[in-house]
Design a protein around this nucleic acid. Sequence first.
DNA 1: CCCCATATACTCGGTACCGGATATACGGGA
DNA 2: TCCCGTATATCCGGTACCGAGTATATGGGG
Lengths: 195, 195
Amino acid sequence: MTFKRTNPLALAVLALLSERPMHPYEMAQTMRERHQEEVVKLNYGSLYTVVESLHRHELIAAAAVQKAGNRPERTVYAVTGAGTAELHDWLRDLIATPAKEYRAFEAGISMVGLLPPADALDVVRRREAAVGEQLTALAVLLEKLAGMGLPQLAWIELDYRMAMLRAERAWLSWFATAVREGTVGGFEHWEDRHR
Amino acid sequence: MTFKRTNPLALAVLALLSERPMHPYEMAQTMRERHQEEVVKLNYGSLYTVVESLHRHELIAAAAVQKAGNRPERTVYAVTGAGTAELHDWLRDLIATPAKEYRAFEAGISMVGLLPPADALDVVRRREAAVGEQLTALAVLLEKLAGMGLPQLAWIELDYRMAMLRAERAWLSWFATAVREGTVGGFEHWEDRHR
DNA sequence: CCCCATATACTCGGTACCGGATATACGGGA
DNA sequence: TCCCGTATATCCGGTACCGAGTATATGGGG
């Protein structure tokens, strides 16, 4: 069976190991330090499953098994040639081909007509505010990172996320106005249904 | 144990049943007809699991068990009072509170520095084109839906998605230029690493 | 009237994933 | 010196999810 590119955590593991050999716990540490867990979902259970899977497919290899005192053994892994190839190929594919992703908000907003218009307006406003807060938090973080002398390329995903959040906020603002003023298409019928 | 709001398919089920009682297979049909599967991930396995879970938590109730000839039994479900409450509450929460979601592209772009600049430019361009195609396809669909006399509220999630796709395309276009012209922060070092 | 492609309706086994449990080491305060 | 809170490092049981499989009914062409 060929390796399945499902969990992006596996991608992160390959990326880390292409720097230097590590044991799983160290990978987790490093990801935390670099705020990578903002972008890639990390939890220990999945990490060990993913590492084992990569190992089975010989994309990584056990470089050493260390044992210090009575501590649990630490298996240090290194990326293989096939692993490096997989990393680059997967990465290219991930960027070039938009994946079909199901976002919870899209599901929610598609059913917004089930709520009374007043409720809908309220929750959309609340989201708008929340998105605004995320934006300011991100701006502060970017300021800090740039101040530390990190190049833009090192936090390019935050740049992307900011652009998306700004677009979302703009859309929410438009929709809120359209609901408040009753100019969204189908408003009369919507209002009638909730009397 | 209280009901866990994980799979949005359960939300879709509650929404459908708040229209009229249905059996699971009929729900799937209806979702397909209405292009809801664009927004909520649907497959039979999950559908039956989700329906069973809703039933266990008494958010829906078995209204009738029909049997026609030698066909498998069809259990028709109806939403309960608690189910309607859950639907509205969940919906409000989904819209009002941005959920932490991990998008594959963000993971990918955060590691774009691992690719040679030329490769990076290529894949970003390819994505830009793909997003453009999605946009035109969406525009055609919207035209069709509006032509059928459907109100904007009925396809509001497509409106949202279009706004997001436009923002993504704009960002990709910016990034592509920044890479081509070498103006993205950290470009020299990036180029040096790949000689 | 027979055949087969398609539609109907659900079931089931496998697996990836989650998050809490486990077990030892270390360090600092009383 | 003795706790105990935190850090180190992995494991494991449960479950939600997936998608392929099953079995019968329908209906249109030859």
